[in-house]
Simulated scan of single mutants.
Amino acid sequence: MQTDKFFYSFLLLLLLVGCKEEFPTYATPITTTTGTFSCLHYMGLETIEKQKVEQAFGIEDNSSCPYVVTLTRYHVGECSNLEVKSVGGDFNGYVRIEVKKGFMCYYKIQSDFKHDATAAFERVLEKVKIDVNQEKKSN
């Protein structure tokens, strides 16, 4: 009886650990002349998301700043492609953060997700923190 409990607990642990999404983040380097941003405007973000993105960049919102931060959460809708349906898609959507000045993109980071958009958002935020700190160290 004791071994049965251990066995089922072990299987449950394997199932939970095996379900974690391990998608990478894709980023372009910050391409401003200084390699950093002097100010940012977080446009169109909900309050909680804005706070998290603002914390990741380490720069407070400045509504008069020309560098605009946008967040895109894209979830693939109904797919009618027979090949994708038979094999299964690699991901169901992505989370992307972009910093633009006008139409010019100065920084972009994205992570795909299969089922967990929140985990993708957290991966993107972690990568933003890393990128911003690397740029600060190199200047």
Rank of each mutant, 00 (worst) to 15 (best):
L14M: 12
L16T: 12
L16G: 15
L16Q: 09
V17F: 14
E21V: 13
E21A: 08
E22R: 06
P24N: 05
A27G: 12
T28M: 02
T28F: 05
P29N: 13
I30C: 01
I30N: 03
T33M: 06
T34H: 12
T34L: 04
T34K: 08
T34R: 07
F37K: 02
S38K: 03
M43T: 15
G44F: 02
G44W: 00
L45C: 00
E46G: 14
E46V: 04
E46M: 03
E46K: 13
T47C: 13
T47N: 15
I48K: 13
I48A: 12
E49A: 12
E49K: 05
K50E: 14
K50M: 10
K50L: 06
Q51C: 15
Q51M: 10
Q51P: 07
K52F: 06
V53S: 01
V53K: 02
E54L: 11
E54M: 11
Q55W: 02
A56S: 11
F57L: 12
G58F: 01
G58C: 00
I59F: 00
I59M: 02
S64H: 08
S64E: 07
P66T: 00
P66V: 02
P66N: 03
Y67P: 11
V68H: 04
V69P: 11
V69W: 01
L71T: 09
L71D: 09
T72C: 09
T72Y: 08
R73L: 04
Y74N: 10
Y74W: 01
H75S: 12
V76Q: 05
V76L: 02
V76K: 14
V76W: 02
E78G: 09
S80M: 14
N81C: 06
E83D: 09
V84T: 05
V84A: 04
K85D: 12
K85W: 08
K85P: 13
K85T: 12
V87M: 15
G88E: 01
G89F: 07
F91D: 08
F91M: 03
N92Q: 05
G93R: 00
Y94F: 05
R96T: 08
R96L: 05
I97P: 11
V99E: 01
V99I: 07
K101D: 12
F103L: 11
M104V: 13
M104I: 15
C105K: 07
C105W: 06
C105P: 07
K108Q: 09
K108E: 09
D112Q: 06
D112K: 09
D112I: 02
D112N: 07
F113D: 15
F113K: 08
F113W: 10
F113L: 15
H115K: 11
D116G: 11
A117V: 14
A119L: 14
F121L: 11
F121K: 06
E122Q: 14
E122L: 10
R123G: 08
V124N: 02
V124R: 01
V124T: 03
L125V: 15
E126G: 01
E126T: 04
V128A: 01
V128C: 04
K129S: 09
K129V: 13
I130P: 13
I130N: 13
N133E: 15
K136E: 03
K137F: 06
K137D: 11
K137W: 15
